[in-house]
Amino acid sequence: MNLRGTWTLFKRETHRFLKVNMQTIAAPALTAILYLIVFRYAMGDRQVPGMNVDYFTFLIPGLAMMTMLQNAFANTSSSIIIGKVMNVHIYLLMAPLSAMEMVMAFLTAAVLRAVIVATVFLLVLTPFVDLSIHHFGLIMVYGVCGSIIMGGMGLIGGMWSENFDSMSMVSNFIILPLTFLSGVFYSIEQLPPFWQTVSHFNPFFYLIDGFRHGFLGVGDSDPWLSIGIVAGFALATVLTCWYLWRIGWRLKE
């Protein structure tokens, strides 16, 4: 086990985003805050149908989670695609780290970035809103599983892509719609029945719903049951990453 090597790679992946923290932490947190402000005034004091919360309170955890997911994805995908385009990924391939060690280092750094961005977002809000925490454990489990899943997707997306163009196709046409349409901005109760059913097949729906449950204690699904779905999905993502890295999928000729 090359612990020092894994730690070094984790530090590298962490430094990469900390060095440009305006772009990787401040900007996404600000974007989420802007969404919040816009919706606050567009929706007024309206309540979310079927739940005993106002729209503003409902929106906060969803936005926090969406930001986490997008940043976890951005961290791994940008690292891999920059590595591939600049040809520095060969130094990772040459390093004596096993596929599991590589994947672990990448994913932990992605989770760390996601947690930092969400924390910044929530800390900025605390003076202005009354944030309740219903169950901290749920928040952590959903937050971490979600970041692992998206960090893993970023890793796979980065390996699949050949250049920045194909990378941004993946993030704009697959990742963005999935996260936007997963119930950040609405409760699926508000949807027509057909789309309610469809939503149940969107893994991000469970992530955001469970995470929100951790704050508000209300949601569209049972968060304790969904933990199984979410954890299983996270595990499957990790294993897929491990396997793909092991065979050098789209990395080695």
Partner: peptide, 18 residues
């Protein structure tokens, strides 16, 4: 690696090799 200085790169490579 555009993110690092030569000295950082060398320490990092050492670390990757355990």
């Amino acid at each position: 690696d555009p993110f690092f200085t030569p000295r950082e790169v060398l320490s990092m490579v050492c670390g990757l090799y355990g």
